[in-house]
Design a protein around this nucleic acid. Structure first.
Lengths: 144, 144
DNA sequence: TTTAATCCCGAGTAAAACAGTATGGATTGG
DNA sequence: CCAATCCATACTGTTTTACTCGGGATTAAA
């Protein structure tokens, strides 16, 4: 019942970009350092996010990455789907094409996984990067 | 974001035992056939469930497996925890000992995963095997 | 125009997890 | 006794994971 590090790291990186939104392109090196992730590995992850048009890249010196939309408009669920694929505790209840299962309607365990899937989706799609930034802000104030 | 087949098959098997609860020990062969699972593989899974005292075994001819408690008293969450380990979308928010993460309180992504974890737990722990049996009953009646 | 900072791309890889198989032993009802 | 069971351990092929490595393309700044 685990996420791979892709989703884990990917969200961290996107969150960091969200905190720096408006400050121009952020080089991946910074992201990797701040979030303590292997830079080369993160490169691969962000490539997926770029192809999915969640981030834009600026090449060359002084380049880096920028969120493709404002933090308010990016949901955690989108990020996770890009990096981990469609949300589905078991294959036969994937968000996308419901892979064929001979039993289909008769399978009661299936409805359990549908409920699990829906509850995960509900959480992930209800949180935007901006929400996370606000949480951090709040958190920092509490600490002072 | 996937369960392995352990949890998937394990729940199927436990559900089947629940539907036959009260009918004496059910041989694993029947379970495997009905749910279309490799018998040898299922043997390994049920061994885990036995060690966790969710099922009892009866050895010898006419033997088989019986739920250790009534279907009403067995929650899906218990089964999944036995077969898949503690519920945790990422390690640092495991239900058990919160593996140390240097950042801990500062990590906002962490709270996302806590929320996901809690929503999964809520679903899995709210469904008993008896609930599933009732669902199937209902389902069968609709089909007629 | 050079150089350094970046992004970009594809290959390779060690280790772990997964999803079983295989083999044989122990127990017990008929 | 024997056939139907459960029990235990070891093995195996495949896939996934979580990287590493090496180099190429682009561009701002010196």
């Amino acid at each position: 019942m685990r996420l791979s590090t892709r989703g884990h790291y990917g969200l961290k990186a996107m969150f960091y970009l969200a905190t720096r939104y408006g400050a121009g392109p952020i080089p991946l090196k910074n992201v990797a350092e701040m979030q303590n992730i292997s830079e080369h590995y993160l490169e691969q992850l962000i490539a997926m996010l770029r192809k999915a048009q969640l981030v834009k890249s600026v090449r060359g010196a002084q380049g880096g990455y920028i969120l493709a939309r404002s933090p308010e408009e990016i949901r955690v669920g989108e990020i996770i789907r890009v990096l981990e694929g469609p949300i589905a505790p078991v294959e036969c209840v994937s968000e996308l094409k419901t892979a064929e299962c001979d039993q289909a309607d008769f399978c009661i365990t299936r409805t359990v996984w549908e409920r699990v899937r829906d509850s995960i989706v509900q959480v992930l799609d209800s949180i935007s990067l901006a929400d996370m930034c606000r949480d951090e802000e709040k958190n920092r104030q509490c600490k002072e």
